[in-house]
Design a protein around this nucleic acid. Sequence first.
DNA 1: ATGCACAAATTGCATTGACAAATATAAACG
DNA 2: CGTTTATATTTGTCAATGCAATTTGTGCAT
Lengths: 152, 152
Amino acid sequence: MVTAPSPTPLSDSNLGALLCQVRNELIGRLERELAAHGYEMNFSQYLALKKLAAHGPMSAGELARTINLDAGATTRLLDRLEAKGYLRRQPHEQDRRALRIALTEAGQALWSDIHACGERALAEATRGLAPDEHVRLHAMLSGILATLRGGN
Amino acid sequence: MVTAPSPTPLSDSNLGALLCQVRNELIGRLERELAAHGYEMNFSQYLALKKLAAHGPMSAGELARTINLDAGATTRLLDRLEAKGYLRRQPHEQDRRALRIALTEAGQALWSDIHACGERALAEATRGLAPDEHVRLHAMLSGILATLRGGN
DNA sequence: ATGCACAAATTGCATTGACAAATATAAACG
DNA sequence: CGTTTATATTTGTCAATGCAATTTGTGCAT
């Protein structure tokens, strides 16, 4: 084999690389949307706000799991968001080890200000997909995730 | 809306989060495969080897673009792989600013030793998908990527 | 030729996140 | 009860990456 027989200049793109690229573009797009609204915030912070807004107060570990982040990283994420005044660490009612993370008023206000950014980024990404394709894509990815997690 | 009407305890999972999760699982799986073969190597390093093996020698910038990595990060990635003896920085024939990154013998041997790890990780992920689904998934992701990049 | 804008790689710096150790509390078990 | 084991969070440390500034080299237009 001497050099590339493939016609495509870049990206022969196996699924793994493709996934990474789409992920990066999508997150980048979201973060730019947020920045355009005047909020310097990364995807993890966005996700944390989203989960807290959707689900109500929860413990740090619970939050860490739902946003797929290490426990230590979550502590520091909470530090940042708390410093900005978007959430509060309250003591957990039954378990003194644990926390009850709750959005502040400011956090809720922020969320209602930015939740559309995510929808917009997503909508832009999936314009070009028929609605049923969108559904199928979601289903396939969920399926893969289940296979990888339950699998072995 | 008060609380979650959805039956799933975790992951109401919009596409962005889902993508991240699949990506993380897939990469984790690959890195564990590699570690099991005795190679401590992250996904970026794996990709770099792959591209160099598939495409032959190329410049650092070219490599950076194909593996979707910042130029500075690529410099350090090359440092690591060069230190392990898997590649060499050679001067570019026409352009003295640029490099010609080439796999060493050891690098080629390594690649033929590990390229199956990637295939295996991918195969495990997509077992459960019919072949035509696999194709459609790839097509949809490529489409999304094109939309996001060309889009606006 | 000389200068000027642009390009390739490197380096400095800051941020993020993973992993492991430490701390505090809870639960289970004898 | 007291001891042991498990769980929730925090902290220390480190590796990887992005961005901005720097260095070196190219090529174009005077």
